[in-house]
Each structure stands twice: as C-alpha cells, then as structure tokens.
Nucleic acid binder design. Structure first.
Lengths: 337, 337
DNA sequence: TTTAAAAATGTCGACGTCGACATAATGGTG
DNA sequence: CACCATTATGTCGACGTCGACATTTTTAAA
C-alpha cells in the first residue's frame, strides 16, 4: 500500500506538503497542488485513517448501538437516518448490537472505546425509558427512541402522545362520535402515551369515553406478547349498527390490519361501515392493506437524522436543545378512514 | 487517555510486557500477569486499536455495504446475521449505504479503503444480478443477496427457485389440483426463479398449468411498481366454485395479504374456500394476518451469517464453496393453507 | 531597490502499539 | 555446580500521519 512518502517522492515535495494537499489545507501553490494530485492519482494513494487517528486522536467514527434490531423491522429507518446524517458529515458509522443482554452491551461499549469512537448513538427498538449512566462510558452519547430521566442525557424520541391526539382529532374532525381504541400492550410506554393523547383529544372535544370501547389488542409479558386485536375488534363490531363504534383507532398498524380482517369477516366495509386508523405507518402494511391504511406515522428516519445531528452538536460543544426531544408523528391520510 | 506505558510504569514492567498480557501472549509469569492486570484495571486502560492497526496493518473491521436498506425492511435480518457472525469473531462492523447511486457507492468504497477494512460484504435488498468488478476495489468481497456471474465473486443468495418448488409441492401434497400463482413483478429475478420452481413442481406432478391462473401481482418499472394483486386475486376468485383455483401461491407476503382481502371481500373463507401461501415470511405480515399465513421463508438471517462466514474464510484463504451459494427457503406452515 | 509581511514548503518528532531481536532468570541434567 | 534449554522480560525502532516550528520563497509596500 502506498504511503504519503511515496507520493511525496514521486511529486518531488516533502511528505508534509502532500499531507497538506490531502487535507485541503490552504497555502499550497497551484502548481504544487497539481503535481501532488497527479502523483496521488498515479499511485492510487489512499490515506490511512488509522495513522491519522493515532496522530490526531480523533477517529471520525460514530458508533450506533442497537438492542434487538430484529423486532421492529421498520426501525431500520432510524439506521438509515443516522447513516445519511453521519456520511453527510464525512464520518463513518460503526454499528453493533447488544441482543438485549448486559454482557453483550458491555462488550460493545468496550469495543467502541477501543476504537476511540467520537460519540455514540444508543438506540432501542421500542420507545421506552432506560437505565443509563453516562459516567460509566465516558463517551458523548445521544439516546434514540429511548430516554433516561435520571441522568441528563440528550434523547430523541417520537411524540407518541401527540400522535394519539392527532389520530383522535382526525376522527373527531370527520364527525365521528363513537370512537373505539384498541391499544398496544399496556406494559409498553407507547401504549400509555398514545392512549393519553387520545383521551386528551376526546376530553377537549367534550366526547365521553366508553370504557368498553378501549380494549388492549396485545397482552402478555414482553417477549411473549399475545395478539388479540382480531378478537377485540370482533367483539367491538358484532353489536348492532347503532350500538357499535363508527371508527376504530388502532395502537399500531398490525392491530389495524387485524381490525380490517375482523370487519371483512363480519361483512363490514372499510371505511363505510367502520373506519380504521392505524399507527406507525409500517409501509409494508399500511400501503398494501386494502383499502390502504390511514395511519399516524412514526418519524423514524427523522429521529435518526436528528439524533445524529444532536450528537454532532454535542461533539462541537453546542447542543442546546432540551434534553428529551420529541418529534411529531404526522397523520398520513389514505383510504381506511 | 491511558496508554500501555502508563500501565507499564504502574506495574513496574516494560511496555512490551503489558502488550503481551493484553494480547494474551504466552510465557508470562503468573505473578507478572497479575500485577499487570491489576494496573490495567486500576488505570482503566483500554487499548488503542488505531495504534495497533498502524503497527500490524490489519484493521479487524469488516464493512457492510447496502443499497437501499429502506425498501425491504426485513432485510435487516441480513444485517443481524452478519453482525452476529462478525462479533463472534471479535471483529467490528462498519456499515454504509449507497442509496443506490454510483457516486455514493464510490464514496463508500473509498471510505472503506481509507479505514483499511479487512473485507467487504456487499448486500443488495433485492435478489438480483449486479455488475461487479472485484479488481476495482481490491478488497476481499462477498456478495449478499446478489451475484455477479461475469466475475468469480463469492455470493450468498436465497434459493428462490426451490422456494417456489417447495410452495407448489406443498400445495400438491395437500391434494390441490387447481393451483394459481400470483407472481412478483416479472422484471424481478426472484419472480422468474420462484415461478420456475413452481412450474417444475407442477410438471413433475403431471399437473397442467392454466395460464390464466398465472398473473402478476405487481407491475410497472422498478421504483414505480404498481400493486395489482388484489384485483388479480379478485378476478381469479369471482368464477364459480368449480371453476376457480383452490389455492393461490403468492409471489410474496404482501401479495398473499391482498389475496386474503380479496377473498374476504367475496365472502370466501381462508383456507376452506381458498387456500393461500405466501413467500418471504415477513413476520409482521405472516404472523399478524388472520388466519396466519403459511409461507416460504427467506433465510435472510442465515444469509447474513453465511456471507460473513465465507468472508472470514476468504480472509483466511480457505473459502472452498462454489462461487454462488444458494440457501434453502423452508416452508413455514401456519393456517392459511 | 530594499524590506517587511505573507505565503509556501520543509524538518523533526510524537502519537500508541507491537515485531524483531537481545538479554536475563529459571529449571533440569549429568 | 557447570551447562544448556526454556521461559520470562526488556530494548529499540517502525508503522503513516500530522502538529509545532523553522526555513525559504513570493508579494507588495516603502
């Protein structure tokens, strides 16, 4: 592999001059720069970042730690957002996965420290609170899709509460009065937040909430969830037309999909007999279901971008935002409501 | 940050001895090792990989290049497989994304070369043939979910053909005679392969293929696909019971889902009136649809693991497999067929 | 033309680690 | 106890780059 010295020799200048050209430093004569660039091209010289790193003590690498990437496939969008932002700053992205176990997590942090990572994005695939002690790792960190209320760690999360609010508001604005809500697993934070938003909107609109119309669509301990949205929807929809809700807000798109199946099974048309609104905007479902799903979008891509953005801010010593930043979940109108 | 010399000073040995302990080299006396480890712990010393890299000229980092991660969320499984295998070998994973543009791709290769990456996994999110000139990059590379027939580049891909075969075989084994196939976009390689497998099985079973029962569920140029599976299924299912297929094999799970909606709309029960088999096993769909979908699983996780495995083989100079390795797509039995 | 300021280039060494080699301590053997 | 084979530890320098500083060249003002 060619080094800066080979280039220097060929161009007939000192290695330091080549270094300057490579790093775009000022005060290089036009002629010298041309000669050096010529030599670089001829030798196909490629700088050695490791060497630079040893010298400068900055790696230009950001680490992304994820827990169980697998559960929510759409959280790839977070990765994509992060990546776009990171490569825009000419940095690189090292990723690692804790599989959810503390041992693995420790190993990952260790590896990152060995790489002298500039900063870390710690992303979870469910929006939830975590135990996080920044002092333990000593690397600037931004939490993604999770937060630590004890410590003052910057975090970027979706605004589930306002998402639920938006869904309810939309239903109300369309004239619905009989509104049901099939929630996520109550053990999940997002479940509570989305429902809170829903109830807030209902309250503000002066609509009463019928408690038998708020049903969990998922139950069971985390890791062994049981999907019961189909049954819940079936129950909601079997009563006489006058008695049943005219719209179901679903805790997520899978639940919404099951509602659609329940409706179809009962011979009810969506959205005419029963309107349905999802949550998350998992395209694979929301766009492919028939009719396509009106849903509240989780801004995963934005979250990734913002998180990386804040990390760079942190590194530059200029992160000014509130510690926990909530990104809006916009309603995406399609045809199911 | 502490260096090996700080540790050496504290332990009262030479830096070289510390290095030996850190790297687990033999011939260190029990006592010395203990003293050094004590010092390491006390100082919280963490080796500097960059420095090691400069010295040894091996980075211990594998690069993963993906194209548009976003389109097929489930291909995260590939990443997860790669990651598990890579961290098992105590290497790290640098990932970057080309967004599908040649400029970005060039940039990514360049960055990887600067990092002196040991090897590259080049993954595409659709199974297809690519133009790939290994001489251009000069880094050991394994292709993932794609292949280059011109050059002799190791590749790991799903065996779509046998997947289609398995689906058809399953249908046949269940006594179905009237079998329809709603394909992927004919422009996609997987479409042809899956269909080939289907036709092979039909041929072997002596069943004739009714051409009006093979319909595309997706059409249009790549990047602007139009989903028409719902309509296709509707057409297939509106004829009288004696005249219509008893089972539909779908090109993927989204298509299968649309078939289920079409069936429901026509008042047909799955699987009693019409059985449906998907492809891909996108859990978000296949497990959540009602009834859950019998489908052919794309072994994405395995593909990731195998690809990384082969890359390490390549690096160790011992990759012996056939250039293009096809991983089986097993049928996952659920309740839609 | 002289002169000072600015621009362009060069010299040297350090970053943290480990390879090559040298040396010292230890343990058996005859 | 001398001797040699191990085993254990140390010395030195190089890896490729860039920071600090020095030197030379150019430019422009006096």
């Amino acid at each position: 592999m060619q080094t800066i010295k080979d280039v220097a020799a060929l161009a007939g200048v000192s290695d330091r001059t080549v270094s300057r050209v490579v790093n775009g430093e000022p005060n290089i004569s036009r002629k010298t720069r041309a000669r050096v660039e010529e030599a670089i091209a001829r030798l196909n010289y490629i700088p050695n970042l490791a060497a630079r790193m040893v010298r400068t003590n900055r790696s230009g690498v950001i680490g992304l730690i994820t827990d169980v990437v697998t559960t929510t496939p759409n959280s790839v969008e977070i990765i994509r957002g992060v990546q776009d932002r990171v490569s825009q700053s000419n940095q690189s992205l090292l990723i690692a996965n804790t599989s959810g176990t503390p041992e693995e997590e420790a190993r990952v942090w260790r590896t990152f420290q060995e790489h002298r990572i500039d900063g870390v994005l710690f992303a979870t695939m469910y929006h939830h609170e975590i135990d996080f002690d920044p002092a333990l790792h000593n690397i600037p960190t931004v939490l993604v899709n999770c937060f630590a209320s004890a410590a003052q760690v910057p975090a970027v999360v979706p605004d589930d509460d306002n998402g639920g609010y938006a869904a309810a508001l939309y239903a109300i604005s369309k004239g619905h009065k009989r509104i049901a809500f099939i929630t996520l697993n109550p053990l999940i934070l997002a479940s509570r937040l989305r429902r809170d938003g829903f109830e807030r909107a209902m309250g503000e609109a002066g609509l009463s909430i019928r408690h038998e119309w708020i049903q969990p669509g998922i139950t069971g301990a985390i890791g062994e969830e049981i999907m019961c949205a189909f049954t819940a929807a079936q129950n909601l929809l079997t009563s006489a037309a006058k008695e049943r809700p005219t719209i179901i807000l679903a805790g997520n798109d899978e639940i919404a999909m099951q509602c659609m199946f329940a409706a179809a099974n009962l011979g009810l048309r969506v959205p005419d007999d029963i309107a349905i609104v999802g949550f998350d905007d998992f395209r694979m479902i929301s766009e492919q279901v028939v009719p396509p799903l009106t849903t509240v979008a989780l801004p995963y891509y934005q979250i990734g971008v913002r998180a990386a953005d804040r990390l760079f801010g942190l590194l530059a010593g200029s992160d000014v935002m509130p510690t926990i930043e909530r990104l809006p979940c916009p309603l995406v109108q399609r045809r199911s409501a």
